[in-house]
Amino acid sequence: MLILGAAQVRQVLDGAEQDVLSAVRSAYVLHAAGRTVVPHSSFLRFPDDDRNRIIALPAYLGTESPVAGIKWISSFPGNVANGLERASAALILNSMETGHPTALLESSTISARRTAASAALAAAALPAGDTGVALVGCGVINFEVLRFLRETVPSLETVTLFDLSRERSEAFGRRVEEELGGLKVEVAGSLNAALSSHRLISFATVAGVPHTAAEACAPGTLILHVSLRDLTASAILRAVNVVDDADHVCRASTSLHLAEQEVGHRNFIDASIGELLGGSVSLQRAADRLTIFSPFGLGALDLAVAALVADRAQAMGIGTSLPDFLG
């Protein structure tokens, strides 16, 4: 058993954005080709508590060296006010030869970067020469989204920020200037001001229910709807919709789930990201309405990045090895 903590995972992944993008792209294409097994996530919720949850995401990824595993990720939004990260996660990889667990990895960084890579791949697959992006929600996920967007949308020059806490927006902006550099940073005074600022938008919030119909967005805008519950059903129904997996995303009261309940079908979903990346479906960003990418977040993506981390960590000689873990 190889054990990797957060610092070691980051040591492997820092500067490896292109490799993460490649791993996530491959996982999406394999998923579209039926070479993954991704059971529905299991949500553990608690009595008299509608905010906190822990989610289990088991998966199988049929690469040349197949791997199975499970991510166990918690979301406790109250952590932010106490100076802690909202999410924490652990991931176990299993051998497909013996079923034995082979690695235990701290996985919040893996989860954030595979999520960001997913959004960045969608932006690359649906290009429109964007020179700016608006980030709604100034937390870990949108920082990673911006990091990966700079890889797939190199024309970006400006980032506009909006968060319910202006203090958090301003701190986020300072971090962008310090760590990413080369971008003009603006802080929007309202959600609508952010939505009208650019034709590329990323939502990564802790919203539990829809709060905007995105009417301030200009036609031709691509929304990377990473947090899945910000947009009203009406916004979804009038848009071109790309998802990672229709069965996964139309559940757990996501915006698409609410849209499905409203109309009684899923015909408003136009394509999956795996189909676009694999070339089996051709789709362009709509010029006259919104295009919305809604990724539920498949466990197979976590496996792809975790396997990359585990392999490189072993080659680098980092991590803790417990050869007698199973006794």
Rank of each mutant, 00 (worst) to 15 (best):
M1F: 01
G5F: 00
A6N: 12
A7M: 00
Q8F: 03
Q8T: 05
R10S: 15
V12K: 06
S26L: 13
S26I: 03
V29Q: 14
R35D: 00
V37E: 14
V37S: 13
V37D: 14
V38I: 12
P39H: 02
S41T: 06
F43H: 14
F43K: 06
F43G: 04
R45C: 10
D48W: 11
D50H: 09
A56R: 06
G62M: 11
A68R: 06
G69L: 03
F76D: 02
P77H: 11
G78Q: 12
L84A: 14
A89C: 15
A90E: 00
A90R: 12
L91E: 01
I92P: 06
L93V: 14
T102S: 15
T115Y: 14
T115M: 11
A117H: 04
A122K: 08
P127V: 15
T131Y: 04
C138W: 00
G139R: 09
L146H: 01
R150V: 11
S155D: 09
S155Q: 05
V159C: 06
T160K: 13
L164P: 01
S169M: 00
E170K: 05
G173K: 11
R175A: 08
V176H: 09
A188I: 10
S190R: 04
L191M: 02
S196G: 07
A204Y: 01
A207E: 09
T212G: 11
A216W: 03
L228Y: 05
D230Y: 05
A233Q: 09
A235V: 06
V240L: 10
V240E: 13
V242D: 09
H248W: 11
S255L: 07
G264M: 15
H265W: 07
R266I: 07
S272F: 13
I273G: 07
I273M: 12
L277C: 11
S280P: 08
Q284M: 12
A287T: 10
D288E: 14
R289S: 12
T291F: 12
F293V: 13
S294L: 08
S294N: 10
G297R: 04
L298N: 04
A304I: 03
A306I: 06
A313K: 04
M316V: 02
T320R: 14
F325E: 05
G327W: 10
